[in-house]
Amino acid sequence: MSNIFQKIWAIGVYIFLYLPLVVLILFSFNISKFAVSWKGFTWKWYEKLLSNTGLIDAAINTLVIAFLSATAAVILGTLTALCLQQYRFRGKQVVKSLLFVVMIAPDIVLAISFVVLFIFLGISQGFIALLIAHITFCFPFVAVTVLSRLDGFNKYILDAANDLGASSWQTFRYVVFPMIKPAVFAGWLLSFTLSMDDVIISSFVTGPGYEVLPLKVFSMVKLGVSPEVNALSAIMVVVTIVIVFTAQLLLKEKR
């Protein structure tokens, strides 16, 4: 494959991925509510959004769930990776297979499994159910990402740290963690992304008591989604990009 062809193809793919987002943001500034043609610039959808508490709450809930579940998934996933790499234990193969199954099972199958489980456990639709579900489908991805990083490094480094009198915590803090930090960060980002993007599992495990964006928007689709949603999406894209890039900059400076 020639270089020029590859570049053109890649640009095409990026345009395909970003066109809907650009359209979404552009039309958050359009005066007309339904027309696709451009009728002029306005801030009015942003003003209307401010008074639409339902929509804003749903957006905040979505962000809160994504942040909490990504953070919990990183802790659980990193622990899993460390255990799989360092210990021999009974049922290791079972743990590996379950992680794999959760990763590739269709969301809809996970969704109905959670519904049945939560009914059985008496956990009602809402915050807790959503959080458990999101942590569960995110953390295997963290485990795999961290594991692939761990596999790359020399095991004798750990013995060396041990011989030099480091405690387990010191070994983790000063030897292991610095090495897996990029993978941990990538795992967090991946979990955050999967959680923000999820539609299927959210629409099964949460309800009117704790609304998230996909549910709110799905109920609007039949009547026509108002440009307030466009405005909200525009704000969320910008806010998320700022958060992630600031986090990355902070991590880099500390290094």
Partner: peptide
């Protein structure tokens, strides 16, 4: 990055 906008909203776009 596009995935930070929920896929339902992007489908609507």
């Amino acid at each position: 990055i596009p995935f930070w906008t929920n896929s339902l909203i992007r489908t609507y776009a």
